[in-house]
Computed example of a mutant assay.
Amino acid sequence: MAGRHGTEVGRADLVDLLIRAQRALVRDLGAVLEEEGFTVDQWRVLRALAAEERTMGELATALEIPHPTLTRVVDALVDSALLYRSQSEQDRRRVSVHVSPLGHTKLDRLESLAAAHEQALGGRVGVDNVTRLTDLLRTLP
C-alpha cells in the first residue's frame, strides 16, 4: 500500500496513527470522566480490579502504568474509599488491592459513561468499523 510520498506504508505509520488515535480517544474520554471527577487511569484501575484483586506489581504490569503513577492513582482511590488494600496472610510483604462496594457503584456509573462515549464514536466512524478495529487490536501483542 502506497503512503503519502509513494513509499510503502510501514510500521512507523501504523505506530504514529495508533498513538494519535489513542491520545484523541483518551482526551475525549478523559473529558467525559472528568465531569465525574475521574481520570482515565483511575477508571482503568477500577476496571482491572473489579474482576479480581491484584498486587500493585500485577496491576502495573497489566495496565502498563509506571509504578509511581499507579501508586498516586491507587492512593487517591483509597482516600476516596473506592479501593482498599489488604496484606496477604501468607506473605506480609504482599499487598493486594480490592474494589470496595462504593467503588463498584462508581465503576458502574463510569462504565455507562465510557459505553456512551464508545457509542458516540461508533456513530462518527461506524459501529462495524469500531468492532473490526477492536477485534484487530486484540490480536496485537
Rank of each mutant, 00 (worst) to 15 (best):
residue 9 V to N: 08
residue 11 R to K: 14
residue 12 A to I: 08
residue 13 D to R: 12
residue 14 L to G: 04
residue 15 V to S: 09
residue 19 I to V: 15
residue 22 Q to R: 15
residue 22 Q to T: 13
residue 23 R to A: 13
residue 23 R to S: 07
residue 23 R to K: 06
residue 24 A to Q: 08
residue 26 V to K: 06
residue 27 R to M: 05
residue 27 R to V: 09
residue 29 L to C: 00
residue 29 L to V: 00
residue 29 L to H: 06
residue 30 G to P: 00
residue 31 A to Q: 04
residue 32 V to G: 04
residue 35 E to R: 11
residue 35 E to L: 08
residue 38 F to I: 03
residue 39 T to A: 07
residue 39 T to R: 06
residue 40 V to K: 04
residue 40 V to P: 00
residue 41 D to F: 01
residue 42 Q to I: 00
residue 47 R to S: 14
residue 47 R to Y: 08
residue 48 A to N: 09
residue 48 A to L: 09
residue 50 A to F: 09
residue 51 A to V: 13
residue 53 E to F: 06
residue 57 G to E: 15
residue 57 G to T: 15
residue 58 E to W: 08
residue 61 T to F: 12
residue 62 A to G: 01
residue 62 A to E: 06
residue 63 L to D: 02
residue 63 L to H: 05
residue 63 L to I: 03
residue 63 L to C: 01
residue 64 E to A: 08
residue 64 E to K: 10
residue 67 H to T: 11
residue 72 R to Q: 11
residue 72 R to M: 14
residue 75 D to P: 05
residue 78 V to D: 03
residue 79 D to Y: 04
residue 81 A to K: 10
residue 81 A to P: 12
residue 81 A to N: 13
residue 83 L to M: 03
residue 84 Y to C: 01
residue 88 S to D: 14
residue 89 E to W: 05
residue 91 D to N: 12
residue 92 R to V: 08
residue 92 R to S: 14
residue 93 R to A: 14
residue 95 V to G: 00
